[in-house]
Design a protein around this nucleic acid. Structure first.
Length: 342
DNA sequence: AATACGGGGGT
DNA sequence: ACCCCAGTATT
């Protein structure tokens, strides 16, 4: 089959398939550029159903770039709780500031302008330009990469590459609507041409070189895995007359900007005396429990202690109700759950 | 070119 | 247990 014909068939099938099978997400019901930009930030490396739960809350609180630009960073971090990759929340705020100052408060539509924003790379710039503004720009995320590698039986690359981007550009150049085609291709990859592909019912079965050679389950090539580093975090719940001590993590590294009960991070196991010494607290530490917290790049052993102390001015003190708003990563919520259960 | 950066769902 | 994901910034 002529390659041009194959591309047109693929594009037509995807646009047709998506018009029938698009899932209902809030940013599709309430479709405007800022909402799309926020959903793209939230969706980076994050499962879409979890984004769908949080998006309405964030858009309600920050309906415009200006509203976020004028807000405190703690507010967006608080709403971002549980989504992970908290740096994205800071990038989103910075992006809102750039849009407010340099783009008159309107989300730009050109890829070159979008790339000036913070936390916007090649994929996100193309996604906003094409999906929010229907401009003829290509996108390649993990879904698109997987679909294209299979359609052309292309092996050897586990991540989006110049080969994939070239193919995506060729396809978007012949589609009728970049907005429909790009989002459709991603959704198709997420639901039909997924890790376990549903080839039996696939509308592109006849165009798929991988299906013809039965290589679809081996494509794209798997990434070589990196070893998790094992570390130890010792969290101490300091209580004084119904209030609890918290500190904010630094500007860089894991959970940057998020809050925690006073914690000792260590590469090696520590005994209780060492923990007490490093935190410099008077009073006896009582061990309440422990749990493992697994991240993609780290295996963290958490041990939770409690201690009755005087009101130490090195920390910020919060009542139990005030903790609802405090930006805490999931591991810290687990720490508080151990304390509650004890 | 590698690595850091979260968390939950799938298998 | 290990895999993966609507990636980007940093080193």
């Amino acid at each position: 089959m002529a390659t041009q014909s194959k591309k047109k068939l693929i594009v037509h099938e995807i646009e047709s398939w998506f018009s029938e099978n698009a899932r209902a997400f809030p940013w599709r019901t309430d479709d405007f550029p800022w909402g799309r930009l926020v959903s793209e930030f939230m969706s980076q490396q994050t499962q879409i159903d979890r984004v769908a739960l949080k998006w309405p809350l964030i858009l309600e609180r920050f309906p415009t770039p200006k509203s976020l630009a004028q807000s405190n960073e703690q507010n967006i971090l608080s709403l971002w709780q549980g989504l992970g990759y908290y740096r994205r929340a800071k990038f989103l705020k910075k992006t809102a500031e750039i849009i407010t100052e340099d783009f008159a408060g309107e989300v730009p539509s050109d890829v070159d302008d979008l790339l000036k924003l913070s936390g916007v790379g090649k994929y996100t710039a193309g996604a906003i330009s094409s999906i929010a503004f229907d401009k003829r720009e290509a996108i390649v995320d993990a879904n698109v990469h997987r679909v294209l590698c299979r359609l052309w039986n292309h092996a050897g690359e586990w991540a989006p590459s110049s080969w994939t981007w070239g193919k995506a550009e060729q396809l978007v150049s012949v589609c009728s609507s970049p907005k429909v085609f790009n989002e459709g291709l991603m959704e198709f990859g997420a639901t039909v041409c997924s890790k376990s592909p549903k080839c039996e019912t696939c509308p592109l079965q006849g165009q798929c070189d991988a299906f013809a050679k039965n290589t679809q389950s081996m494509l794209p090539t798997v990434k070589k895995k990196t070893k998790k580093k094992k570390v130890f975090h010792y969290a101490v719940v300091l209580e004084h007359q119904g209030e609890f001590a918290f500190e904010q993590r630094g500007d860089t590294g894991l959970w940057s900007g998020m809050w925690q009960v006073p914690t000792v991070d260590s590469d090696v196991e520590l005994d209780v005396n060492e923990i007490s010494k490093q935190l410099n607290v008077r009073g006896k530490l009582k061990m309440l429990g422990s749990f493992e917290h697994m991240l993609s790049h780290r295996a963290i052993s958490f041990t939770v202690f409690s201690c009755k102390v005087g009101k130490d001015s090195r920390f910020n003190w919060f009542s139990a109700e005030a903790l609802e708003e405090l930006p805490l990563a999931t591991a810290q919520r687990k720490v508080l759950a151990v304390h509650c259960a004890a």
